[in-house]
């Protein structure tokens, strides 16, 4: 149910990929961009190593119902997330999948983009923890939902100081991936 100015984005992957943080960064970047947003996440045992999910709703004005209802964008960073969320995705939605985490998918969906997001995160910070941030870079380049400066600022305020630089790099790397598409 994405009507008007409302955009719904879901980041889904495995625990430890920074999916929840990435969602918050995206929501905060939206506010910094002068828009409103909500962010919701799946809590509890799911957040510890299993599937992880982060929904962001971005709109220009007040958001009535804060939860995602009809996704505009789905970023899938694990096979489990793919299996769980892609089947209910509307045809009009944009799907971003990690090419390594989701091997050999060729279902011919329109609006499907494959990127080496996980691999890029590994390359830059040596762990999957920045995967979500790389995905944000991809999203920014791909959708232009939030502006780059706001996103960069949100990343800077949300991640710990000593990882700021690496995350900004990860964001840039994601942006590069997206732009290359």
């Amino acid at each position: 149910m994405s009507g008007g100015d409302r955009t719904e984005i879901r980041l889904a992957g495995a625990g430890g990929q920074g999916v929840v943080t990435a969602g918050r960064i995206l929501a905060e970047a939206a506010i910094l961009s002068g828009r409103t947003s909500t962010h919701s996440q799946v809590f509890g045992p799911q957040s510890r190593g299993g599937a992880s999910r982060s929904d962001v709703v971005i709109a220009d004005a007040e958001i009535g119902f804060p939860l995602a209802l009809d996704l505009d964008v789905l970023v899938v960073l694990s096979e489990a997330a793919y299996t769980r969320y892609v089947p209910e995705l509307g045809d009009a939605a944009t799907l971003v999948v990690d090419e390594r985490a989701v091997p050999g998918t060729g279902d011919g969906r329109p609006q499907t983009h494959r990127f080496p997001i996980v691999e890029t995160a590994h390359r830059i910070v040596g762990s999957p923890v920045a995967t979500g941030v790389v995905a944000l870079g991809v999203l920014e380049a791909l959708t232009g939902l939030v502006d780059a400066a706001a996103l960069e600022k949100a990343v800077g305020s949300r991640v710990p100081a000593h990882r700021r630089e690496a995350n900004i790099q990860a964001l840039a790397a994601g942006r590069d991936l997206g732009q290359a598409a």
Partner: peptide
Amino acid sequence: DEVIGHTRES
């Protein structure tokens, strides 16, 4: 409820 508790809103 949990949704209100956990959801972030601007």
